[in-house]
């Protein structure tokens, strides 16, 4: 429909405006995205550039100098530029994980709601099974058998969230299928494709987006945790988690190597969660 596109997207999705706190969070996310994607180009320093003369330099304000704003690690590599690179890896993994998980979850949820019976039983059992399992432990076991590389990580972070979207979209679809306009759409000949995409998906999109703000931080946390344990992103790539792992040995000597990437994770998850809170409050969606 052409006339839908003439309205602002937010209004179309029925998403409310954000408050001051939300704007600050949005600003931080903008900064971190720019740092991750444009930072390396702007700073123009090699993230793996070893400088043994400038080892373990503290950040500015803790006795450091401006040529290494956030200090250096035990090989003299610049922390700021390494964080920029790591942010890109972490954000991309979390983002793709969220989107793939959402896509799988929403489709299986709709399938379960639509066909019911045995299909529903199978999907619901899978949902319950995954919800009951400590996913981090399963992920660790999977890494143990499949090895740790970016592809395995991507599969893991994608599988992580599907169960929530499946549960949510199954429940919502079941209730929307009883809504008058969905029943009426069947009587005037709308196909199931139209009904699910136009009348159900678009109406529950706001709820799904709020749920994304809930899963995204957890996925980011899952990836960084695995990397922190040495089971995630492997050198020469670096994620925020693996940077922290690398700096752990030097914690008492050079805290900034571990703590600064950790703060980047914390502020990012906090920003996304806060935006999610504000959205769900405005939309009065109960998220747990």
């Amino acid at each position: 429909m052409t006339d839908l596109s003439t309205k602002p997207l937010a209004m179309w999705l029925r998403l409310p405006k954000l408050s001051a706190a939300g704007s600050i969070c949005g600003l931080w996310l903008l900064i971190i995205v720019i740092a991750g994607f444009a930072g390396p180009a702007i700073l123009g320093i090699d993230p793996n550039g070893v400088d043994l003369l400038a080892r373990l330099r503290p950040p500015v304000g803790f006795g450091g100098t401006v040529d290494h704003l956030l200090g250096t690690d035990q090989l003299g590599r610049d922390i700021l530029i390494r964080i920029c690179h790591a942010v890109r890896v972490s954000l991309l993994l979390a983002l793709f994980g969220t989107l793939i998980g959402a896509a799988i979850g929403i489709s299986t949820g709709f399938l379960a709601a639509h066909f019911g019976g045995v299909v529903d039983d199978v999907i619901s059992t899978l949902i319950d099974f995954q919800a009951a399992m400590p996913f981090l432990i399963l992920a660790i076991a999977a890494v143990a058998t499949l090895g740790s590389n970016i592809a395995v990580l991507l599969v893991l972070v994608s599988v992580f969230g599907w169960e929530r979207y499946a549960r949510l979209s199954r429940g919502l679809a079941l209730s929307y299928l009883n809504n008058g306009y969905v029943v009426a759409a069947q009587t005037y000949g709308a196909g199931w494709g139209t009904i699910y995409s136009r009348h159900i998906l678009l109406n529950i999109l706001a709820i799904l987006i709020v749920n994304i703000t809930l899963t995204f931080p957890e996925i980011l946390m899952l990836e960084t945790t695995l990397s922190f344990l040495g089971l995630g992103v492997q050198p020469p790539h670096a994620s925020l988690g693996s940077m922290m792992n690398y700096g752990r040995d030097q914690l008492f000597k050079a805290w900034w190597i571990s703590i600064l990437p950790g703060l980047a994770i914390f502020l990012t998850t906090l920003a996304v969660s806060t935006i999610g809170d504000i959205l769900s409050n405005r939309l009065s969606i109960d998220r747990r």
Binding site: M221, T224, I259, S273
Partner: peptide, 18 residues
């Protein structure tokens, strides 16, 4: 609560150690 569950436990652990 939002700070609580946004704080990675490994970060919190390292900060407590420090």
């Amino acid at each position: 609560s939002v700070i609580g569950f946004s704080l990675p436990n490994f970060l919190l652990g390292l900060m407590l150690l420090l």
